[in-house]
Write a protein that binds this DNA or RNA. Structure first.
Lengths: 193, 193
DNA sequence: CCTGTTTCAGAACGATTGGTGAATAACCCG
DNA sequence: CGGGTTATTCACCAATCGTTCTGAAACAGG
């Protein structure tokens, strides 16, 4: 009884995400979004409410994948340094890298939709928790000294994590990032009791 | 014999830098730049050639201060871990923080002026070198093991450095960053031979 | 084959963008 | 106290922004 839509919501979000990722919120003009997603302007507004809504949907999708990936690695049993190292290594992508979309959103916190910024912050907080959980496990298994400040070490790991994303933006090769991660893990192992 | 200009070039750049810093390249509209700097549109074009030129001048000014600060800390004699820790701690700013303007530029590499992006990359490379020089000194003084991969450790320090800037964007308090830095330095000291 | 409902394609909207010109005002030197 | 030069003011430009509207197209049920 009605004309069927010619688009799949998730596919549209994927393509929009790709454009927002590369160009940022303001850089991704509506005309480019329309062309790149294949979705016409009218349907875009009906489906997402506007540019900001489409950005939020894109971030949600990215954050969903991101947290899924982090959880997949950082909830392996038993928790410990192995998981942490695996998580840091999983951050590496190809040569064409536009940074972590979540962090990019934070870097544009004055132009990106406020709702998106909030969700990015929430995701960052969860990732930090995941890292710390594995530190707790590392202590339990004797991989890290009992007297260590896990709050501080967790922040350190997240800082390293986020720094690796920036390294990607700066064009650092995966091999160099690998070496930096290896150095960090070596230090952590040396700190064992 | 001529009408004297009513503005001071450096002051204008400072104010433009402040706006670009908060709003990004595209977010800082020309009207806002004109209002915030006090410089009229026409003179802005005559002096800087346009919005892109003003952005490059802003970045140059920022990078100048930034490198001056890094050099000031990281070229103290003797080179070693003390300088490195001091440099990491010097990254902290107040609560209202918009990230490192150099890194923000990299995060907008597809919308910011290409010349600015290049200069940001060059500055990042120099900072990494400064860190590594102190690692060399640390090895010479026996603070770090001779067999350590200084290339990798240097990358690690820069990664930490850049991650701290992102932590600032994410609203992490100075105290938490302090703790993370302390944890990192403790690890480095434990790695001593 | 209509009819009702929804999507689609594209034009058009007012507002705002970065950039420019033409006229006015300010100054120093002679 | 003008004259010549430069900065400033202010209006304007074409282009583009995000958003909205209009009319045609595509289906399912009667």
């Amino acid at each position: 009884m009605v004309r069927p839509r010619q688009y799949v919501r998730e596919e549209v979000i994927d393509k929009a995400l790709n454009l927002f990722w590369r160009l940022g919120y303001e850089g991704a003009h509506l005309a480019a979004l329309v062309e790149h997603t294949g979705l016409n302007r009218f349907s875009l507004y009906k489906e997402f409410g506007g540019k900001a809504g489409l950005y939020e949907a894109s971030l949600d999708r990215f954050v969903g994948f991101l947290l899924e990936q982090y959880r997949g690695v950082l909830t392996r049993q038993p928790p410990g340094l192995e998981n942490i190292e695996a998580a840091l290594r999983s951050l590496e992508y190809g040569s064409e890298y536009y940074g972590c979309f979540m962090l990019n959103t934070l870097a544009q916190k004055d132009s990106a939709p406020p709702a998106a910024v909030e969700r990015a912050l929430a995701a960052a907080a969860e990732i930090e928790t995941l890292y710390r959980d594995n530190l707790v496990g590392a202590v339990a298994r004797g991989q890290v000294d009992k007297t260590a400040d896990l709050q501080a070490l967790g922040k350190l790991l997240q800082t390293l994590d986020q720094g690796l994303h920036m390294q990607g933006l700066a064009g650092t090769s995966d091999a160099q990032k690998d070496a930096a991660i290896a150095a960090a893990m070596a230090l952590l192992h040396h700190a064992a009791p």
